[in-house]
């Protein structure tokens, strides 16, 4: 890990401790716990390695600095996580964020629930909206579906972060607006990246996008 990758983290995706009000922290913890429990119930032991690979991919991809104008942005990929994992995206995002917090110092401890909620809820929304169309015609329109999931995942995360800040005190409202604005360019980048990734997966390994639920096993 180079210092360069750590020094510039834009946009702000991890809220640190000490900023949010207690009711917001509790809401985040409750929503995250609920989503994670549902996700774990749907994740059988057979699929844990697969979910772990995606959690790790999410972690590694967040280290990629994508050039954008004079600056650079970091990918979230929560839309892609939702498309590929469905409900299991919630525990996978929790694990990735916990590792980032503990070993990199991104975010904090008590805000882990809110930070997970901010990324996992958009992932679940993308799963609910885009998984069915993707399954119906894999390949055709894959780029648009991927781009939609990429942009929506990022924009919803920006909105949730802004709402969490604004709900913690009216004095934080301008900061919330500034942060929301920084999400707009990332939405564009993430739309293209996720669209390309979904097109690629549709051609090379469609079984990742449309897991053969009927078989479930390798053989």
């Amino acid at each position: 890990m180079s210092a360069r990758l750590l020094a510039e983290r834009a946009p702000i995706a991890h809220i640190p401790d000490g900023v949010l009000a207690a009711p917001v922290l509790v809401t985040g913890a409750v929503v995250t716990a609920g989503a994670v429990l549902v996700g774990l119930r749907q994740l059988d032991y057979e699929r844990i390695p697969q979910a772990a690979v995606l959690a790790a991919a999410f972690f590694v991809a967040s280290l990629i600095a994508v050039p954008l104008g004079p600056s650079s942005v970091h990918l979230l990929l929560n839309g892609l996580m939702g498309l590929v994992l469905g409900w299991a995206a919630a525990p996978a995002i929790l694990v990735a964020l916990a590792l980032q917090a503990v070993f990199f110092g991104f975010g904090g401890l008590l805000v882990l629930g809110v930070n997970t909620m901010n990324m996992a809820v958009p992932a679940l929304v993308c799963a609910a909206l885009f998984r069915a169309p993707l399954r119906r015609h894999p390949g055709r329109g894959a780029f648009l579906i991927g781009a939609g999931a990429g942009a929506l995942g990022v924009l919803l995360t920006g909105v949730l972060i802004a709402v969490a800040l604004a709900a913690s005190g009216s004095a934080l409202a301008p900061a919330a607006k500034i942060i929301l604005l920084t999400y707009l360019p990332l939405a564009l980048v993430e739309a293209v990246v996720t669209g390309a990734a979904v097109t690629f997966l549709g051609r090379v390994a469609p079984e990742i996008l449309c897991p053969p639920e009927a078989t479930g096993h390798d053989r």
Partner: peptide
Amino acid sequence: WRTLGWLVGMLLVRSL
């Protein structure tokens, strides 16, 4: 961005 998207896709395919 498209190239990085393919890179992410390839990362997933090989890792899975």
